[in-house]
């Protein structure tokens, strides 16, 4: 771990100013559940660490005319119990899947959404893309936990966020502050993520001096049901082998609109329009859910060691749909 400056701003503007320094070679400290792993492994070597925990505007959940404004500092266990979030079943299920009470109590939503990949090549010092002398190590190396979709570019890792699939399925908006103080931009959370072409690009659109401050989640309608389904090897703290989140709007028992988003299968959260198309106009049952699962992975391009993840992703989609519809029975979790 390199020596670094420590700063503890009180406002978003202060944070933006502090993060802009050192050419943007700065890091955000929120819950710290992963930052210290990255620092200790020298995966990142920031000149300054900006501790944002004291920025009150980024804490808590507020109802607004546009929906729920959820601060990036909202902790995972707050998501589990917050009454305003109760209608968003898929969020609570994602939080429940984390299973570590330490991470649930310290980890923040913003930290999760900006989580850097768990790719073991990255964590072993081969850079974000896991390259050595320009060669991708995961392309032919130990890629059993790597991407099966969206993996034709240089990025082979999987997006590590546990909440992005559910939030994207809900149509959440990311609110970003900076790089100038007072400057704020918004975008669908789906477009917050990038599959980097270079190690310097990062996994989000955030530029030096920018920070994710909130997500805005639209009001749920009565007809929408949601669910997250994580496939976790361990009951304890573990990363999903694949996950899926769905939001389904039904009318008269028929799906009118469907949003299906997969996690841990691609370098970004993976919005499956194919799965949505397979569901719309159908009544939800085992067969429809299976067809949506099949559609979600129809274009998968597994690497040498991870074809099994295609099957797991298929199952995650199927079971998320069945869970949302209250039809999931007998699965092992």
């Amino acid at each position: 771990m390199n020596s670094f400056e420590y700063a503890s701003p009180r406002t978003e503007d202060e944070a933006v100013g502090l993060l802009s320094a050192h050419g943007g070679n700065t890091a955000v400290l929120a819950g710290g559940t992963d930052l210290f792993n990255l620092l200790r492994a020298d995966c990142i070597t920031p000149r300054r660490v900006v501790d944002i925990k004291n920025i009150r505007s980024m804490q808590g959940v507020t109802a607004t005319g546009r929906g729920l404004l959820v601060g990036a500092l909202t902790t995972l266990d707050e998501i589990l119990v917050h009454p305003l979030l109760a209608p968003y079943q898929s969020l609570a299920q994602a939080a429940d899947g984390i299973r570590s009470i330490q991470v649930q109590s310290m980890g923040t939503l913003g930290g999760d959404l900006c989580h850097l990949p768990n790719c073991w090549y990255y964590r072993s010092g081969y850079g974000l893309l896991g390259q050595r002398n320009g060669e991708s190590l995961p392309a032919e190396g130990r890629n059993e936990f790597h991407a099966v979709l969206g993996n034709r570019g240089p990025a082979k890792f999987v997006s590590a966020s546990r909440f992005a699939p559910a939030l994207i399925a809900w149509g959440a908006i990311a609110r970003v502050a900076g790089p100038e103080p007072g400057q704020v931009s918004e975008m669908p959370l789906e477009y917050f993520y990038v599959s980097p072409k270079s190690a310097e690009q990062g996994v989000t659109v955030l530029q030096p001096g920018q920070i994710l401050t909130h997500v805005l989640i639209p009001e749920p309608s009565q007809e929408v049901v949601s669910a997250t389904y994580d496939v976790l090897q361990l009951e304890g703290l573990d990363w999903p082998l694949a996950s899926a989140a769905v939001c389904l709007e039904t009318s008269g028992g028929v799906v009118r609109e469907a949003r299906v988003v997969l996690g841990h299968v691609a370098p970004t959260p993976w919005v499956s329009l194919d799965a949505s198309a397979a569901l719309v106009g159908k009544e939800i049952d085992e067969r429809a859910a299976q067809a949506a699962g099949d559609a979600a992975v129809a274009r998968a391009t597994p690497l040498s060691e991870n074809e099994y993840k295609v099957q797991i992703a298929r199952t995650a989609v199927k079971r998320a749909i069945l869970r949302a519809a209250g039809q999931l029975e007998g699965a092992l979790s």
Partner: peptide
């Protein structure tokens, strides 16, 4: 769940940490 994973590209013990060297918890 528990195994040593050797990397054919680098020759490294690629999961030598408590996240990727998977040990059961009480629920398992």
């Amino acid at each position: 769940s528990e195994e040593r994973i050797m990397d054919n590209k680098t020759g490294r013990y690629i999961n030598a940490d408590l996240q990727n060297y998977k040990l059961p918890r009480i629920g398992d």
